[in-house]
Design a protein around this nucleic acid. Sequence first.
DNA 1: TAGACGTAGA
DNA 2: TCTACGTCTA
Lengths: 157, 157
Amino acid sequence: FKWMEPKKRVGPIWGVHTGDKFKFRSQLKMVGLHCQHRSGIDYININGMNLAISIVDSHCYSNERKSSDMLIYSGHGGLGDSGRKLPPKDQKLERGNLALINSMEEHKPVRVIRKVGDVFVYDGLYAVTRYTQKRGEEGKIVFNFHLKREPGQPPLF
Amino acid sequence: FKWMEPKKRVGPIWGVHTGDKFKFRSQLKMVGLHCQHRSGIDYININGMNLAISIVDSHCYSNERKSSDMLIYSGHGGLGDSGRKLPPKDQKLERGNLALINSMEEHKPVRVIRKVGDVFVYDGLYAVTRYTQKRGEEGKIVFNFHLKREPGQPPLF
DNA sequence: TAGACGTAGA
DNA sequence: TCTACGTCTA
């Protein structure tokens, strides 16, 4: 009951194409698209620096879809678990949030998986262009990462 | 990615023996031992009455092990989720708790799975002999179900 | 829609 | 140990 773990890597995954659909997060991990069991931001450590490699957009935070190739993704932290019944907290510049900033500064692509209905769809490679910090509805700090879909990939719509 | 669902049933499961070990809750479901993803009490509806069919004892509540064939199992409810950070509440006589009482009154056996270390061990069939209601450490109502292992089953120790 | 004795990674 | 954009059943 233990399979070969795919090696985490930056960029495209061999054999996975934009538009490919997955029913469970565990399948994303199996093929190496996104190796976090529940967390929305996956990253690897390269030479002591954490680089984001993939994000899952399940619309659990208040992410916005500006246009077909722009995505605003909220950082993690601050929600609590399982239906956000815990008091909200400030998000912090740590772990996945920090890794996304590093990916931006190093100009490294991030794989994007979006939850559409009840399936996860691979949306291709994006670049983190900038991030903003503001206060959410409850007055807590929320980071918004702006991602732009890299050109030359098959459109999803 | 969808397998044949085993039919829920009362009593022993064909091919599963006391002492059989399982690593994940999902495996308990696959073989039909315990079909709840996370909940500790599984039950079926027979003629409008819910009957408990299996419990998983993960020692997350304060269950006591009186002797090798006696088990005290706390009812469900009242803890909150994921590390009990929510305020405790009274347990209620509903769902699984009610089903355990019905199993007692109908003299139906309940399968017991215990978490030992990091594996789940099938412990065999038990009878619910009685239940008590008291107030736990936080002053909230907790049900304790007393279960007695049915004789004639291979000892685990 | 909410509850539930889970899981794996950091 | 704690977190975490899950997943299932009722």
